[in-house]
Simulated scan of single mutants.
Amino acid sequence: MRDVVRSRSVPQIIVSNADYERLIDLANASMQRLPEVAEELLAEMDRAKVVEDEAVPPHVVRMGSTVTFESDDGRVRTMTLVYPADESLDQHRISVMTPIGAALIGLGVGQSISWSARDGKNHRLTVTHVSTPASPSCQP
């Protein structure tokens, strides 16, 4: 299923050097426990344009960003993208080590991407708003 989603055109994503390094390390460390999400995150990092931390535009999702997005089912959600230890769905914080979290990293306002849920269903989301984190990069 992932090959089908991956073969569609995907938007250019931008990731800071700091996020890139931390996310590569996180994905590699998670390969045994969460291989599908780890591979998806590594694939996202492979295609990312990596820039200096201060060069990431404010409308781009980075670690610690609060992002509003619309799903293909019409639902609008607002969540903060965090590292796994900080995940709390009750507080609207989603881990980058979830399929939707890996799909969000590096997207800008107006960009859409298809992603596969853990149950194998394909979804599409569109970023509608991004609030940058208080610090340039959220600490793991």
Rank of each mutant, 00 (worst) to 15 (best):
N28F: 05
G64Q: 04
A18W: 00
E21Q: 10
R22W: 05
I24N: 04
F69T: 12
V67R: 01
M31F: 09
Q12R: 07
A38E: 13
L34H: 08
L34K: 05
A55L: 04
P58K: 09
R62G: 10
E21V: 07
A43L: 00
V15T: 02
Q12T: 15
L41E: 01
S30K: 09
L41I: 13
D19E: 13
E39G: 12
S16F: 04
I13M: 00
P58H: 12
V15S: 02
K49A: 11
V60E: 02
P11F: 05
P58N: 15
F69P: 06
M63E: 06
A18S: 15
V67H: 06
E36I: 11
R33S: 14
E21G: 07
A48F: 08
Y20R: 13
M63H: 00
I14H: 00
P35Q: 03
Q12E: 12
I14F: 00
I24P: 07
A27H: 04
A38P: 15
L42T: 14
E44R: 08
V37R: 00
E44L: 03
M63P: 07
A27F: 03
P57I: 02
A55C: 00
N28A: 04
S65T: 12
T68V: 10
M45E: 04
Q12C: 06
A29S: 12
A48Y: 07
A27C: 11
D46H: 06
T66G: 11
L26M: 15
L26V: 08
S16D: 07
F69A: 11
H59Y: 14
M31E: 15
Y20L: 05
V37F: 00
A29K: 13
V50H: 02
A18M: 05
V15L: 03
Q32G: 12
A48C: 15
Q32Y: 08
A48W: 05
E39H: 13
R33V: 14
I24D: 02
L42A: 11
I14K: 02
P57R: 04
A38V: 14
P57Q: 04
L41D: 05
S30N: 13
A27T: 06
I24F: 06
V67Y: 01
A48Q: 06
P35I: 08
T68P: 08
E52L: 08
D19Y: 02
E54S: 14
R33Q: 15
D46C: 09
E44D: 14
M63N: 09
D19Q: 02
L41W: 05
T66L: 10
V50W: 00
D19I: 05
G64M: 02
L34M: 14
F69I: 14
R62T: 12
D19G: 06
R22T: 02
I24C: 09
V61I: 15
V60R: 02
T66V: 12
E52G: 05
R33N: 15
E21L: 07
L42K: 11
R33I: 12
S30L: 07
R33P: 07
L26F: 09
A55Q: 08
V37K: 04
V37S: 02
E52V: 03
R33L: 09
